Amino acid sequence: MKSLCILSVALVLGTGSATIAFADDYDLDALRAATEKYKDVNVALAEGFIQDPTGHCVTAGAEGLPAEWGGMGIHYLRPDLLKLAAPSERVDGNGTHTDFTQPAILLYEPQADGSLELVAIENLVFKKAWDAAGHGGPPMINGRSWDHMADNPDTDADEAHNFMPHYDQHVWLFRKNPSGDLMPFNPAVNCDHHSK
């Protein structure tokens, strides 16, 4: 199964030649206050979020990465903010939305009682659209470059998980992440109670 947004093994922390074209700084407490309404998944649905059509609950281990990295959960996304294109071989779009006070993606961890607990927010921009908008490098948040994901044709793995090349960024506002608030996976998140 393909998932929406998974860590690229090679993080874009600067290639030496790339320039940073867009950077945002956020107070995470203020960002948490701005997005806590999404703790109720029904609010998210009412605002146009849909569950990732695969229904996949993402963990590093299930993606062939070290299991100790943890999980992400189930992705809920806003197609309008991502500006998804018509279905094709790989998911594509024209989205360049970077405002984390209005995230394009929400991450929920399934609970034993069947409910969903909001654990993080995320944004994703498609590299082709981002470059076409005149940006000379990846977006940044609080001094960190967003993660770059692109499929490597020299491997059997699908590093971009059925998506065209893109940048994405997670912000762990509602579940403490021992690895860091801006890392892709969270060791404190799991999919133990997920049933598709």
Rank of each mutant, 00 (worst) to 15 (best):
D29A: 15
I20G: 04
N42S: 06
K37V: 05
T59H: 01
D27F: 07
A33H: 01
G48V: 11
D24Y: 02
E36V: 12
V43F: 07
A30R: 03
P53S: 07
G16T: 05
V58C: 07
A62P: 05
C57I: 01
A44T: 12
Y38G: 00
A46N: 11
F22Q: 08
Y38P: 14
V12L: 10
T54A: 15
D52Q: 14
G14F: 06
L31R: 00
A60F: 00
K39M: 08
I50N: 01
P53Y: 02
K37D: 13
V41A: 03
C57F: 05
I50H: 04
D40E: 02
A46I: 01
G14W: 02
D29P: 06
D25W: 01
L45N: 03
A30T: 09
G14K: 02
A23G: 14
F49Q: 01
T15S: 14
L28D: 13
S8Y: 07
A10W: 12
A34C: 04
V58I: 03
F22D: 08
E47C: 02
T35A: 09
G61Q: 12
R32Y: 07
A62F: 11
L31N: 12
Q51E: 14
V9W: 12
E36D: 15
H56C: 09
E36G: 07
L11E: 09
H56W: 14
D52M: 13
G55E: 00
L13E: 15
E36A: 13
Q51P: 09
I20C: 09
D29S: 12
E36I: 03
T35V: 15
A23P: 04
N42K: 11
V43K: 15
G14V: 08
D27G: 08
A21D: 10
F22H: 07
V43R: 03
G48L: 12
L11H: 08
D25L: 06
D25M: 11
D29G: 05
V12C: 08
A10F: 14
T54H: 03
H56T: 12
D27R: 06
L13T: 10
A10S: 10
R32D: 11
N42Y: 11
K37A: 15
S17F: 08
V58Y: 00
G55L: 07
C57W: 02
V58E: 10
A18N: 09
G16R: 00
A21F: 04
T15F: 14
N42P: 03
R32G: 11
K37E: 10
G14P: 02
V12K: 01
V41G: 02
L11F: 07
F49E: 10
A23E: 15
A10T: 01
V12E: 04
A23H: 12
T19Q: 03
A21C: 11
L28N: 05
R32A: 14
K39V: 13
G16Y: 01
Q51H: 03
T15V: 12
Y38I: 13
A60I: 07
A62W: 02
D27C: 04
S17D: 10
L11V: 05
G16W: 09
